[in-house]
Design a binder for these strands. Structure first.
Lengths: 209, 209
DNA sequence: TTGACATGCTAGTGATTGCTAGCTTATAAT
DNA sequence: ATTATAAGCTAGCAATCACTAGCATGTCAA
């Protein structure tokens, strides 16, 4: 890996641990194995390192949405999604659990989550990304999906957006609670399962039971 | 107000704006109107100022739970609570909205929220407080309340804890989203209302409609 | 073989950090 | 009036901060 890339990666790890202000360029350089002055052959400032992290995460996220099939903005293709098609309980638990664990343990996503929370009030850009990915996009996606499912007669009719928030908000809360405790992810998964059970119990149409 | 108290208050404001590392003792002293060296007549270190903030917030929160009647730990007195007794839609919206707006705009709570998010990974104590107040206690309280309401035949029977999380998690998400945008609180309230409408629509027993 | 360039290094910059020593002054009890 | 204490001040400490200048070295194309 190029030195420049390694600087970005090590800085990502350090910023996620101790924050932007709490990390010195000297510490980043030490993690890479060079002197702090040499860092400036690759980046013009500490801020530029941070910017490269933002770019790296953006790239990672857009790669994810390609491979995982989780739509991003325009290419929503909700109809094509086989997710939740029948609102089968076990399948829904399985898929939700996998996505949840992925978010908790993926090294980029989990570090991005931490940095976003620490730097949200100093850095509009990174918090804007966080808000879009973990709030607006997630809710919009679920809303469209649930609207489709209502049309298809799988879900009870209702306010699709409110239902989507009711489904997603507990996942968001669990992510917040267990973001830095991925060791306790079994506890989190147990709660997640019972939330999904409750959701299906309430929202699945009788003729699909 | 005593100088010591003023130092704590000004530090609280500054830490909430720029974080612990992002705020210098000189800035705190300037906000109070004294020289930074004079600060050390009242506190032995910057960390001790932070600790006094933690104590201040603890005091404020326990005062709140006395006056607001929101129970804390032991003195749960769930039965005595008139909240949600009939699951009246407008009343529920009104109460939830008031508590929500209070959390968003109370100067101590809102600053505590910001500091807790910024310092959560550096300071176990303050994040423990945050977790207890805004996650564990809140959910426990709602769980007990909903369990009572199920017994009383107001709510549909079900997993009280899962229902509590379904009710509370959207509020938590909205708090996260609008914590530093109390100007847009009308947008937040609108979403909150539609969540409550959906909740009541799904969970209120037919014979109470 | 030469020369250009990339990438490391040492050494050091001025600014800022949290904090201390020690002096002055205002207040208030004896 | 004297004196003790609290609380302000100036001055300055060593450490650390992000960052720069300039030199050494290794690689690779001409």
């Amino acid at each position: 890996m190029s030195t420049k890339k390694r600087i970005t990666e090590e800085a990502l790890t350090l910023f996620a641990q101790k924050g932007y202000k709490g990390t010195s360029v000297k510490q980043i350089a030490e993690a890479v194995g060079i002197k702090d002055a040499s860092l400036y052959k690759h980046f013009r400032s500490k801020q530029e390192i941070f910017d490269s992290i933002v770019a790296l995460i953006n790239e990672h996220i857009s790669n994810l949405s390609d491979t995982l099939g989780i739509p991003q903005k325009e290419n929503q293709n909700v109809e094509a999604s086989i997710f939740y098609k029948k609102l089968d309980l076990d399948e829904l638990k399985d898929i939700s659990g996998k996505v949840f664990i992925f978010y908790l343990t993926d090294p980029y996503i989990s570090k991005f989550w931490r940095i976003a929370h620490m730097e949200q009030y100093q850095n509009d850009q990174i918090y804007g990304m966080f808000r879009q990915i973990f709030m607006d996009d997630a809710i919009t996606y679920q809303t469209d999906l649930f609207a489709e499912m209502m049309k298809a007669g799988i879900l009870r009719e209702g306010n699709a957006r409110a239902v989507a928030i009711s489904f997603y908000a507990p996942i968001f809360l669990l992510l917040t609670k267990y973001a830095d405790h991925s060791d306790k992810k079994d506890d989190a998964l147990e709660i997640l399962d019972s939330q999904i059970e409750e959701f299906v119990r309430v929202y699945r149409k009788a003729d699909h039971e």
